Amino acid sequence: MSVADSRSAPTDGLAGWALDLMDRLGGVGAGLAIALENFFPPLPSEVILPLAGFAAGLGSFSLVGALFWTTLGSVVGALGLYALGRWVGEQRIRAAVEKLPLVDVEDLDRTTAWFQRHGRKAVFFGRMVPIFRSLISIPAGITAMPIWQFLAFTATGSLIWNSIFVLAGYKLGENWSAVEPYAQVLQYVVIAVVVAVVGYGLAKRIRARRRAAEPEAG
């Protein structure tokens, strides 16, 4: 049975597009959709992965194939962003930071030093965090993380994340879309935490600069 013939299969929007890829190309289509998700965030892996599991349950391709192709797609997409980071390089980033208000080059140096110490853990766990799943590949490229390390930790983290959602779609069957609301809640939590941390950092920086300017004004 083709997944497109199921009454619960999406027929339009991004999910419908991903479904069409899977119907046409099988597991390769699922991998391609996940690879493109790295570059096009509105294409959510939290929809594609359960849909791939659902398709595997219907026999469009095997469960092992779903896990293999989606993980390969994750790695290929991440490699593209890693290459972008390598091309941009630290010098271009430094030049851009020097022109930004409320950001000091020292912040970049501290961030770079942190990533050089903890980059492997950041890449591994970052592949399991919405939003950062794709973005984490860019600093890995900028800091020139060894490619073999990047591939190993990206593949391992992606396999864990993909397995959770592919298996959920496989087990839920016709109710595969029930996964999406929970994934959205997780994404909102991540966004809220990021906004709070960035907001706190900016407020702290503004207060520090105001205090530094007070003696001069007096």
Rank of each mutant, 00 (worst) to 15 (best):
R94S: 12
Y170T: 00
P130C: 01
R86G: 14
A203S: 11
A35C: 12
Y82K: 09
L63K: 08
I131G: 02
A212Y: 11
T143H: 05
A52W: 02
V75L: 02
D5K: 03
R7A: 12
I34W: 01
E37T: 03
F125L: 15
D107H: 15
V103I: 05
F150V: 05
A178L: 15
L81F: 08
T11W: 03
N162C: 03
G141P: 05
F61P: 08
V166N: 13
A183I: 03
L67F: 00
G80Y: 09
L159N: 12
D5Y: 03
A66H: 02
Q91F: 12
V198G: 08
S177P: 08
Q187P: 00
T112D: 09
Y200Q: 13
F40H: 06
Y82A: 10
V64D: 07
V193A: 01
A66I: 05
I147N: 03
I131W: 02
A96G: 12
D5A: 00
I93K: 02
G73T: 01
F150G: 09
G201T: 06
L63T: 12
E98C: 04
I131V: 04
L172F: 08
G59A: 04
V97D: 09
L159R: 05
L25P: 05
I136P: 00
A96P: 06
G16P: 13
L19A: 00
K171M: 13
L21F: 06
V88D: 09
L32M: 11
T143L: 07
S74V: 08
V64R: 10
R86D: 11
G29A: 00
